[in-house]
Design a protein around this nucleic acid. Structure first.
Lengths: 345, 345
DNA sequence: GTCCCTGTCGAAAAGTTTTCGAAACATTGA
DNA sequence: TCAATGTTTCGAAAACTTTTCGACAGGGAC
């Protein structure tokens, strides 16, 4: 019964901003502002208007009854896998919370070209796109510039063009901090598990490692640097290889946390204790690292803040401003837990 | 260069219906009708207007610059924290990939009432809402039924109404499998760390534990069941308490993986080895559990499939079909790794 | 007291959609 | 053939919403 009345009335005469405004005793403009989350409305007034909106069963509509999907931003991952990515989602949604923009999460399609895809996003009227750990060709980039959709990269594997806005972390100094932490503990033979060879962030960490070794007056041993691809499995394999060396390292720095956990697993298999027999440092500080046994010493990347920064950069681009800096690197911090100790030997 | 011109002009004076109308030589109303797909426009006129729209790079907007964004579905979490939630995102996006519906990810607002929130979602014309691990009051539920937005729950903390569609896992039989695995290994003193007391899924796992004990002819010892709240910290505390008992358990079943990792940390602190001195079973199989040292035996919840099932249920509801079953429980599977072994004693 | 800043609000302007009537044309019936 | 009637197409005006910008009030700072 109720439903019928509502329908009847809704068709006859829709609840309009004016009606709500009259009952509250404010102007139409003010009611509009409340609905659109504008800031220049006093909290008390806002509350009264919201109550009235509720009271009148006001349904939002762009104009004349066509409802809007609202403003949206597209957040695109290469894969929905690591906990880091969830952190990024969190950062972006938080940054966007006040502005009334919704976050659409997606993964990059199999279609490698992506012209179609760029068009689809432009057609959906996204405010912009945030691409996470992407490999973007110049051509793919062009598809976006053509459509005029703002694009910001988080932790890109490669940077197709120096003019492309991107957010990252201080991978070099983070890698240096990690290795320096180990040298300061007294380690001299420090192994490293690399990241994907083609990924910028991984090589920066490697260079940081080398810099810290040089600063401590340690001559690098190529045998102690092993390839990896950011997976647990590669860390495990590299860990076994390192530990089976005639003169094995007393500490290992892994290019990310899954690799570090893999090294820890390798140490366990070889009957070594952490940190007494082997120190391990990771990179990322994903949530489970603190729950490892023992809790992992690692370099924290501020993923949520990176997401936030990316969203803010996107807003600037969307409003036509130019970024003060196209490449932003947020500070990493070394988090010392229990997987590192002075060498026993 | 092109970019600059576009931006400049876009800010200065947006392309308006009037401009397009003038160049085509029709009224603003007619252009509006073409954009909104109204029928009362001659095919020839429509074609000319569409060409002109394209020509002028007209950007659709409801009013004053609010663009519309295609079909969307809202996926709402209590918090963007556990890796499980990322799995759910993955399942939903996969399920939705073909249908051209975008997934908007959000978190429940602080505003506990949520009438405002329900209206916003209805106003944004979402196809529906998927709520993950929610505590939903009857009143909050009503806000949604009133607006007519389909609503599906994943792993709800409580179920306000038996008619509410929800997706979960077979928590009872999962809990039973976990405990049975331990009894079959020969354990007789099996501890349990509970989940949040108010969460349905947690108590179901507890009942499963009791059922398995009963089946093995073990009389339950209330001392061996400790409270928890699904966090690492609570698992750690409960683990210490259990291990400090005069007659400590030889195995512990934790209501989820973070708790289980907490128990493992407690064992480490007490100098016990896993699985020799203590077996540990978790629940969830979040990705890092397989990377623990030792890899955690746990009950896998098919989060991605749950997300997929929720999306499909939503589609049915959105098309007006009734669900064949309002409550769907997907099967859990016991994943035996290296954190469990027969008791040494 | 004066100046300036900031927060709040509304009047007016700008943009869009819908309603409804007019014009043009086709169709029907005699 | 001609009038009556329906149909299609289109625009003027009305209705609705958002944004811009100016006004006003209430603090500080000096």
């Amino acid at each position: 019964m109720n439903g019928e009345v509502v329908t009847e009335e809704a068709i006859r005469r829709r609840v309009t901003l004016g009606a709500v405004a009259r009952t509250v005793g404010v102007s139409i403009a003010t009611v509009s502002k409340v609905i659109n989350g504008r800031s220049d409305v006093a909290p008390a007034t806002r509350a009264r208007i919201q109550a009235a909106l509720l009271d009148h069963d006001y349904v939002a509509r762009g104009l004349g009854g066509v409802p809007q999907g609202g403003r949206t931003l597209e957040l695109v991952f290469d894969a929905l896998e690591t906990p880091n990515n969830l952190e990024i989602v969190r950062g972006v949604t938080e940054a966007v919370a006040d502005s009334g923009i919704a976050v659409v999460v997606g993964v990059v399609p199999d279609d490698p070209l992506g012209a179609e895809w760029a068009r689809r996003i432009a057609g959906a009227q996204r405010e912009g796109v945030i691409l996470v750990t992407s490999t973007l060709s110049q051509q793919q980039r062009n598809h976006f510039t053509e459509t005029g959709v703002p694009l910001v990269l988080i932790d890109p594997v490669n940077i197709p063009d120096s003019s492309m806005p991107s957010i990252g972390a201080t991978n070099f100094s983070g890698g240096m901090d990690a290795a320096k932490h180990l040298t300061e503990l007294g380690h001299r033979r420090i192994g490293m598990v690399e990241g994907r060879a083609d990924a910028l962030c991984g090589v920066a960490r490697l260079h940081g490692y080398h810099a810290a070794l040089a600063a401590a007056g340690i001559t690098p041993d190529p045998d102690l640097v092993r390839p990896g691809d950011f997976t647990f499995q590669s860390g495990y394999q590299a860990g076994l290889d390192l530990l089976d060396l005639p003169d094995p390292p007393t500490a290992v720095f892994a290019a990310n946390d899954p690799e570090a956990l893999g090294v820890m697993a390798a140490a366990r298999v070889r009957g070594l204790r952490i940190p007494e027999d082997l120190s391990v440092v990771g990179f990322d500080d994903m949530s489970p690292s603190r729950w490892a046994s023992p809790p992992l010493t690692t370099v924290r990347q501020p993923f949520a803040e990176m997401g936030r920064a990316a969203a803010e950069a996107l807003f600037q681009l969307a409003t036509g401003e130019t970024l003060n800096s196209t490449r932003v690197e947020l500070a990493t911090t070394l988090v010392v837990r229990e997987s590192t100790a002075p060498p026993s030997r």
